[in-house]
Amino acid sequence: MSINCLIVDDELLARRLLSDYVGKIPELKLAGTCASAMEAQGFLQKQRIDLLFLDIQMPDVTGISLLRSLSNKPVTIFTTAYAEYALQGYELFVLDYLLKPISFERFFQAVSRAVEYINLLNIKVLPPNSGVEAPAPGYIYNEYIFVKSDYKIHKIAHSDIDVIEAYGEYILIYSGRQKIMTLGQLGKMEQMLPRPGFVRVHRSFIVNFSKINAIQGGMIYIGERQVPLSKGYRDAFMELVQKSQLF
């Protein structure tokens, strides 16, 4: 699969260098180059881009402002001469952060991570009860999820998840003492997880039913965590509990 790339940088020499680097990697296909964020915004509205190489400091509109304005963000690698923007890159879930001058070795390292991540995004996931006896090529069983956090792609087994919490535009995944934050919506996460193994108990919480230690009033206890059980989800949740009761 070819990965469509767009290079956005106001410096001609930088665009030429990155174009040369892209041409050396067979998996990449250069869809275009842009000299400004405004030009890139128009380009992105017309053509699907898988991987964006984005400069930060550009006239009029910065790369950070451009990325924040995009509703469907491509996998993005910052290419910049300014190290102080690394935190903002982290907040925007940028995959990597390349400091100029960029060597081909460092570029290749970043692209290898990007290719791996994009390939994972394109894997079709079969539900646990799909009726398919053996995995077909290009498919995986959803016994785990992949999430991007802290410049890494984390593989998390369903059985390791305790609680999932909505946190603004992000999701917090609690697994034992580990907490992973990733960009996403709780509703979409709910659709990815097997049921009734995972249960929505609040507009902001999903719990792993097998990890519940106790239920008291409007509170669910999982390890050291207390998760609220809201009225809107209480009846469906208690029905599952009753089906599991011995007495």
Rank of each mutant, 00 (worst) to 15 (best):
M1E: 03
M1W: 02
S2Y: 12
V8Q: 07
L13M: 10
R15V: 01
R15N: 09
L17K: 10
L18T: 00
L18A: 02
Y21V: 07
Y21R: 08
G23H: 04
I25K: 04
T33F: 10
C34Y: 13
S36Y: 07
E39G: 04
Q45A: 14
I49S: 05
D50A: 04
D50R: 05
L51S: 04
L52Q: 07
L52M: 11
L52R: 06
L54P: 07
I56N: 11
M58C: 05
D60Q: 14
D60M: 11
D60Y: 01
V61L: 07
G63C: 02
I64S: 01
R68E: 13
R68C: 03
K73S: 03
V75K: 13
T76D: 11
T76N: 09
F78A: 04
A81H: 00
Y82N: 04
E84Y: 02
F93L: 01
L95I: 03
L99K: 11
K100T: 01
K100H: 01
P101I: 06
I102Q: 05
F104V: 01
F104E: 00
R106F: 00
R106W: 00
F107L: 10
F108T: 08
Q109Y: 08
V111T: 12
V111W: 00
S112W: 00
S112A: 14
V115H: 13
Y117G: 08
L120W: 09
L121I: 06
V125E: 12
N129E: 15
P135W: 02
A136N: 13
I140D: 12
I140F: 12
F146I: 11
K148Y: 08
Y151S: 15
K152L: 07
K155C: 15
I156G: 13
I156N: 13
A157E: 14
D160R: 14
I161T: 08
I161H: 14
V163K: 02
Y167R: 11
Y170N: 09
Y170W: 03
Y170M: 01
I171R: 13
I171W: 08
I173N: 05
I173S: 03
I173G: 03
G176Q: 08
Q178N: 12
K179G: 07
M181E: 07
M181T: 13
M189A: 04
M192G: 00
L193T: 11
R195N: 15
G197E: 15
V199Q: 03
V199K: 09
R200L: 09
S204N: 13
V207T: 12
V207Y: 14
N208I: 08
K211R: 12
I212T: 10
I212A: 11
I215D: 03
I215C: 14
Q216R: 15
Q216K: 15
G218W: 02
G218Y: 07
M219H: 07
E224M: 06
R225N: 13
Q226W: 01
V227R: 01
V227F: 09
G232P: 08
Y233N: 07
Y233V: 00
Y233M: 00
D235H: 10
M238C: 12
E239V: 00
Q245G: 02
Q245Y: 11
